[in-house]
Design a protein around this nucleic acid. Sequence first.
DNA 1: AGCGTTTTTGACAATCATTCTCGATAAGGG
DNA 2: CCCTTATCGAGAATGATTGTCAAAAACGCT
Lengths: 128, 128
Amino acid sequence: MKRHTWQREAVREALGTTEGFVSAQALHARLRDSGSSVGLATVYRALADLAVEGDADSLQQEGESLYRACTPGSHHHHLICRRCGTTVEIAADPVEQWAHEVAAQNGFTRPDHVVDIFGYCVDCSKAL
Amino acid sequence: MKRHTWQREAVREALGTTEGFVSAQALHARLRDSGSSVGLATVYRALADLAVEGDADSLQQEGESLYRACTPGSHHHHLICRRCGTTVEIAADPVEQWAHEVAAQNGFTRPDHVVDIFGYCVDCSKAL
DNA sequence: AGCGTTTTTGACAATCATTCTCGATAAGGG
DNA sequence: CCCTTATCGAGAATGATTGTCAAAAACGCT
């Protein structure tokens, strides 16, 4: 059975109060700075669990996994600022359908997809 | 200036005769088995170069980078079999446009995107 | 509240892909 | 053929992530 611990709650909360994607390392550092004593391994475990349960989205960038809290249960994609990490959740209904069609046309079953858009957000566009 | 070496050519060719995505490690192993003496670091360097030059596509999966030869110069996406790695290049014009629009609507500039569809190919669907 | 069972934790070691280092090697131009 | 300079290769170094295992803490039960 799954147990409820203050560590997991701390990770969940830290992730929730974060703008954009964070790495496990960064989140651990932040927790430590806030006086928490969670272990690094625990943060990794908690994030992996959150991702499995659908309470967090994850993506790989430059060899590390980044996580972000997300509205649970809803399927969506992201628009991510390459510079500051700010993230906007976007619906992509037309793309969902397109993905299904393309998969079917090629005889593929159980299609799943990765759709993310990277760019520079308003502020960062100015700053360049 | 960029020099032409048999090592780079070997990597390029090995990649070209590969169905689906391969990891640098796997490609190196294959080259070694074929009697080649290329070093692992060289394979990594060659693949990174090919990706930059647009002669190879890359994607990250489970913490490792996978590469695949691709039709140079053309922008496209992939439909990848989760089980055997077979890959189909797909055009996604409607998605390209959609990505641009969504980015613009949110004030993002220089949009780039990652669009990949995973599933089970015809053969693997039967095998399950 | 007290107990026992079982999951979770955390410090550290271990792993694994990738990158760096640096002397040796070889491409290409002249 | 020679010289300059990019590239190679072997192994060390790095850095994120995962495994190990004894100690700590949840939860169900009484």
